[in-house]
Structure formats: structure tokens, C-alpha cells
């Protein structure tokens, strides 16, 4: 039992001796990670402990908070699903077809990563408000996309689009055409080839992209608050609840809701990591 770890670690340590800097870089990494991320996040837990169980429960299940969970999770789910459909479409078109301006379209996909969220927020609001470019045509039809939950979904679609495109695109590029050729030679229709050969290959990537877009949407704040209208019980997202409690100096209440969000995002992070491992194993197995 005692001999085993030594035997196992001996060959592993060998490269570490050749390349210098292990202690320095790992030490710095751990120090910086602790100072910037881990210790501040632990403050969230310790602050929550100042609340009794009942107080905590009351803070995280108040009617306004519950309504905000419904909106945040519901809108994020819808937006991520829309992004799966259109993200797959955009990735497919970019990888498989040639058309004028393809390079520019490809570069534009990353716009939501690069454009500050507040800018996206005011600009989407300007477009969709009753007097905006798009809003003025929709309002006579009775469609309102700004200052209600619809606006939240639209802002979250904008934010999440690149995640699905950029996770599916490389997998689609690497997918072997020979498999499709074989399917065709064996008499499959194009739709059968897509649904039974191509889709299973890209499904893990699609799911990863979905989870990433969903995780990002849940925490999103900047782009949403301008377009949401922020009416309590109707169009108030959970991050805004935290801000609201902070502004009333209800630090413990804000912390309790923040802890719920932190736990959710941690679970999603683990899910995404698991999905990525699955995806890597999948693509490793086929190639």
C-alpha cells in the first residue's frame, strides 16, 4: 500500500525535473486564484451563515424572488433552445456552403462576445421600442417585444448565439464526409443521412453549446435590464433582485439569493465540463 504511490509517481515526476518553473507557476496560480476568486466567493458562504435557516428560506423563496427565478430560468431556456436551432443553422451554412460575404458573417458571429452588454441592451431596446425601427411595424400588429418578458428572451438570444455556433462549427468541420458518402451509397436519403449520421456526431457539441448559452443567460444582467422594463413579479430577473436588495442595504438577503445563483452556476459548470469530456471522447473514438 505504501509502495504503490511512489511507484506510480516516479515516472510522472520525471518530466517535471527537466522543465523548471513548476513550483513558481503553480504557486502563483494558486495564490492569485485564491485572492481573486476563492476567498471572495467564500465570503458569500460565510455571510449567508449569519442568517438563520428560516431567514435564508424566506429570502430565497419570497414571491418576488420566485417570480424572478421563473423568468430567469424560463427565458434562458427558451433563448438557449432558439440558439440551438439557429446556431446549428448558422454553423451548418458557414461550414458546408459557399456564399458571398461568408468571411464577414463568420467574424460577426462573435459580436455578442465583443460588444459590451450595456450597448447591446440599449440598442436592442431602441430597435424594439414602440417607435424603433422594428417596433413601429410590430406595435400595430399588437406584438410588443420590449419592456416585457419577450424582451428578456430576445436579449438572451443575442448573448447566447456565439456559444452554439462556435462549439458546433469545429465538430462539423472535422466530421468525416466518407461516412456521409457511405450512407448515400447504401441508399439513405439526405435527410436520413443528416438525422442518423451527421446529427449523432454533432449532438454532444450541440448540447455543450446549449448548456453554455443557458449558463451565460442565467447570470446575464447588462443587456437585459434595459429591455426588460423591470416590473416586479413580471419582468424582473434574478440578478436585478440582488441589486435591488443591495440598494436597500439588505446585504444578507442579497447574499442568500446570490448563493442560490452561485450554486446553480457551479452545477452548470460541472455539467458543461462533463459534456466536453464526453464530446472529446466521442470525437476521439470516431477519428
Amino acid at each position: 500500500m505504501t509502495a504503490l504511490p511512489i511507484a506510480a509517481s516516479a515516472p510522472r515526476r520525471a518530466p517535471a525535473r527537466v522543465l523548471p518553473g513548476f513550483n513558481l507557476t503553480l504557486g502563483f496560480t494558486l495564490l492569485y486564484l485564491s485572492l481573486i476568486v476563492l476567498i471572495p466567493l467564500s465570503a458569500l458562504f460565510f455571510k449567508t451563515f449569519t442568517l438563520s435557516g428560516d431567514q435564508f428560506w424566506a429570502a430565497v423563496t419570497g414571491p418576488r424572488v420566485m417570480a424572478s427565478y421563473r423568468l430567469t430560468f424560463g427565458a434562458s431556456l427558451i433563448a438557449a433552445l432558439v440558439n440551438v436551432v439557429f446556431g446549428l443553422l448558422v454553423a451548418w451554412v458557414l461550414v458546408r456552403y459557399d456564399f458571398f460575404g461568408k468571411k464577414i458573417v463568420d467574424a460577426l458571429v462573435d459580436l455578442p462576445f465583443a460588444l459590451p452588454t450595456a450597448v447591446a441592451g440599449i440598442s436592442l431596446t431602441a430597435l424594439l421600442a414602440g417607435n424603433g425601427w422594428v417596433g413601429q411595424y410590430l406595435e400595430p400588429l399588437g406584438i410588443q417585444l420590449a419592456f416585457n418578458p419577450n424582451g428578456v428572451v430576445i436579449a438572451l438570444i443575442f448573448i447566447g448565439l456565439p456559444f452554439v455556433v462556435r462549439t458546433v462549427q469545429p465538430v462539423l468541420e472535422d466530421a468525416e464526409k466518407e461516412l456521409e458518402e457511405a450512407a448515400t451509397c447504401l441508399g439513405a436519403t439526405r435527410w436520413q443521412t443528416f438525422s442518423r449520421v451527421i446529427f449523432p456526431t454533432i449532438a454532444p457539441a450541440l448540447l455543450t453549446g446549449f448548456a453554455m448559452a443557458f449558463a451565460r443567460a442565467i447570470g446575464e444582467y447588462g443587456s437585459v435590464i434595459f429591455i426588460a422594463g423591470n416590473m416586479p413579479m413580471v419582468s424582473e430577473i434574478t440578478p436585478l433582485i440582488i441589486i435591488g436588495k443591495l440598494e436597500q442595504y439588505d446585504y444578507a438577503g442579497a447574499t442568500a439569493v446570490a448563493l442560490v445563483m452561485l450554486v446553480v452556476s457551479f452545477i452548470l459548470l460541472l455539467v458543461i465540463n462533463g459534456l466536453q469530456t464526453w464530446q472529446r471522447r466521442r470525437s476521439g473514438a470516431t477519428s
Partner: peptide, 24 residues
């Protein structure tokens, strides 16, 4: 685990990120 922790700030809501520094 370390790699996952490095990624952690991406999945934390920006509002929560600001809040932890207020708490500190």
C-alpha cells in the same frame, strides 16, 4: 479541479462577482 476553478468566473453572474467584493 484546478482547470475547473480557473473557469469558474465565467459561470458566475457578473452581479454576484461584484457582490462578493462588497461583502469583503
Amino acid at each position: 479541479l484546478l482547470t475547473t476553478l480557473v473557469d469558474l468566473p465565467f459561470s458566475v453572474s457578473p452581479v454576484v462577482a461584484g457582490l462578493v467584493y462588497v461583502l469583503m
